[in-house]
C-alpha cells in the first residue's frame, strides 16, 4: 500500500447526501475478478447517459473542478459492502474523501485501500462547499500525522479522528494480513480454549 502523509489539492464537490455505493459503482460493473479498472465506472449513471455520452452538468464532467480530494454530503458510502466502491473512488485518482458522516463499511474499505476518509463538522463541510463555489481553485490540505484538515480559502483548521492503528498503517503503508498472521500463536491459543 502507498504511504500517505500530507496532501494539498483542489476539490471536487458533490453536495449530495446519502450517496450510496450503488451510485458510486453500479452492480452491473462488479463482474470483474481483479481490483483494477473500477475508476472508469465511478458514478457511472450520474456521469454518462444511456448512450454512454457524458452528462454535462455532473461534476466529474465539468473541467472547472478537478483534484484528488472528493468532498461529499453527509452519509457518504451507505448501502452495499462492495469494496469496489472504494476501488472506484481510489482508481479514479482520489486520495481523500471528505464528508460530515460516512457509512461504516465504506470507511473500513477505504482505509484498507489507502483512501483516507476525513470526517468534518457540518459547518466545516458547508464552508468547503461555499469556498469552492466562490472559487473553483480553492484548496484543502490534509495532514495525516497531525490529523488536521485546513480549508485554505479561509485558513480554518479542524482536527479529524482516525484510530491510531489505522493511522500508522497508512503512514507506513502496512497491511492488516501481515499483522494478523504475526498473531498466529494467539489465534491457535484462542481455538484451544474455545473448542
Amino acid at each position: 500500500m502507498e504511504k500517505f502523509i500530507t496532501l494539498t489539492s483542489t476539490i471536487v464537490p458533490l453536495p449530495i447526501e446519502n450517496v450510496d455505493t450503488d451510485q458510486i459503482i453500479p452492480a452491473r460493473f462488479l463482474k470483474a475478478t481483479s481490483r483494477e479498472g473500477f475508476g472508469d465506472n465511478l458514478f457511472r449513471d450520474w456521469r454518462f447517459d444511456g448512450n454512454n455520452q457524458p452528462i454535462k452538468d455532473f461534476v466529474l464532467n465539468n473541467p472547472t473542478y478537478n483534484g484528488t480530494i472528493l468532498v461529499a454530503g453527509k452519509n457518504f458510502g451507505s448501502g452495499s459492502s462492495r469494496e469496489h466502491a472504494a476501488w472506484a473512488v481510489a482508481g479514479y485518482g482520489f486520495k481523500v474523501v471528505v464528508s460530515s458522516f460516512f457509512a461504516d463499511i465504506f470507511k473500513n474499505n477505504s482505509l484498507n485501500n489507502g483512501l483516507l476518509p476525513v470526517v468534518v463538522s457540518e459547518r466545516f463541510l458547508a464552508d468547503i462547499f461555499a469556498a469552492v463555489k466562490a472559487n473553483p481553485a480553492a484548496t484543502l490540505t490534509v495532514n495525516l500525522e497531525e490529523q488536521t484538515i485546513t480549508n485554505n480559502a479561509d485558513g480554518a483548521i479542524e482536527k479529524f479522528q482516525i484510530n491510531a492503528y489505522k493511522r500508522n498503517c497508512l503512514l507506513q503503508g502496512y497491511d492488516d494480513i501481515d499483522f494478523l498472521l504475526s498473531n498466529k500463536a494467539k489465534i491457535e491459543a484462542w481455538e484451544k480454549t474455545n473448542k
Partner: peptide, 12 residues
C-alpha cells in the same frame, strides 16, 4: 465486510 477483510478471514 469488504473484500480486503474477506482475505483477512481466509488467511487468519
Amino acid at each position: 465486510i469488504g473484500t480486503s477483510e474477506v482475505e483477512m478471514v481466509m488467511a487468519s
